[in-house]
Amino acid sequence: MRLQNFTKGLWTELPVLRVLLGFCPTLAVTNRAENGLVMGLATTFVLFFSCTLISIFKKLIPHRIRIPIFIVVIASFVTIVDYLLAAYYWEMHKVLGIYIPLIVVNCLILGRVEAFASKNPVGDSMLDALGMGVGFTLVLVVLGSIRELFGFGTIFSHQVIGKPYEPMVLMIIPPGALLSLGLLLGLMNLIRDRMEGRR
């Protein structure tokens, strides 16, 4: 087990911003930081258990039908998350709506299962899945915080900007998601270019 498998998900292979996967949920649910956090945790849950299970049984899975098997495993864990959220966090389940079942087609999960968990030992796969999940959650929370800050003047529903602030509705409606993610991605590329230039 190498710790590097965990940390790469937080910077060098940061989902969404460095590895361009999983845009749909990132754009769709980040109008509040809390929504982003729950979505990120749900995805992490699915990612962690799918990667672990598939890594354990990787020798038993026939190579030719591996993709359908991966998808069924992922879909089963997504069903579990869907029912858990419906049972214990009904309000959030209503807010996230069809984006919870759509975790199945989040390319990030299938990508990690196919590229990493089906080829590496269980311990490494668990670390890899956790790192990617935490990185993904981080991105969603950051984007959600930016949009909530400008759109409502709050972060995690705590008032940050005082009352006279006129909320920028643009940030919480769909165009705001695309614009803020585009700028965030540009900023990320700028930071990467600067760091590579210095080396």
Binding site: P174, A177, L178, L179, L181, G182, L183, L185, G186
Partner: peptide, 12 residues
């Protein structure tokens, strides 16, 4: 990709 997202934002 970043400029594509910005353009998509304006379209949206």
């Amino acid at each position: 990709i970043p400029i594509a997202l910005l353009v998509a934002g304006l379209l949206s």
